[in-house]
């Protein structure tokens, strides 16, 4: 099958890329757009290392064809940071040792980003349930949960200060 042109808006930038219909979104992001943050871990939508944000949803990009994302707005880990510096989640993951080998980290932070958009004040239990689609082999999650809760607190404090 020939390649088709699809349009993706990734991290605020519009791209037209040629992709075979069967091309998986994670490969388009990693290889065509050179965004190496999303990783391939399990390939069967269990591990979440490939998680990106598509039109406000956390999606496992290894289980989506690029063609399905034609016209979509995508945010990857590379687009989470603000022009002022790292996103609070990125800072808190470092602060609380929420990562070790780093392989799950982009997907984990991208997922946590959406979780906090939907639930700015999660309990520990809600954080654990909210990141249950992301596997980590290194940290035992304890410090990831801590980092996400700390990020939520910081973001809420910043929001209050702004009001």
């Amino acid at each position: 099958m020939g390649k088709q042109i699809i349009t993706l808006t990734v991290n605020g930038e519009k791209h037209e890329v040629a992709a075979e219909p069967r091309e998986l979104l994670v490969h388009t992001l990693r290889e065509t757009l050179n965004l190496r943050g999303p990783h391939v871990g399990c390939e069967t939508s269990h591990c979440g290392a490939c998680t990106v944000d598509i039109d406000g949803k956390s999606v496992k990009s290894c289980t989506m064809f690029a063609a399905q994302a034609d016209g979509a707005e995508i945010t990857t880990i590379e687009g989470i940071a603000t022009p002022d510096g790292m996103h609070v989640l990125q800072e808190m993951f470092r602060e609380h040792h929420g990562l070790q080998c780093g392989y799950c980290t982009p997907g984990m932070i991208t997922r946590a980003y959406r979780l906090l958009q939907e639930n700015p004040n999660p309990t520990e239990e809600e954080v654990r349930f909210g990141i249950a689609g992301n596997l980590c082999r290194c940290t035992g999650y304890q410090n990831i949960v801590k980092a996400i809760l700390a990020a939520a607190a910081e973001m809420n404090a910043a929001r209050e200060a702004a009001q």
Partner: peptide
Amino acid sequence: IADPQVRYM
């Protein structure tokens, strides 16, 4: 059912 990402799709 499944996990958060899968439930979005």
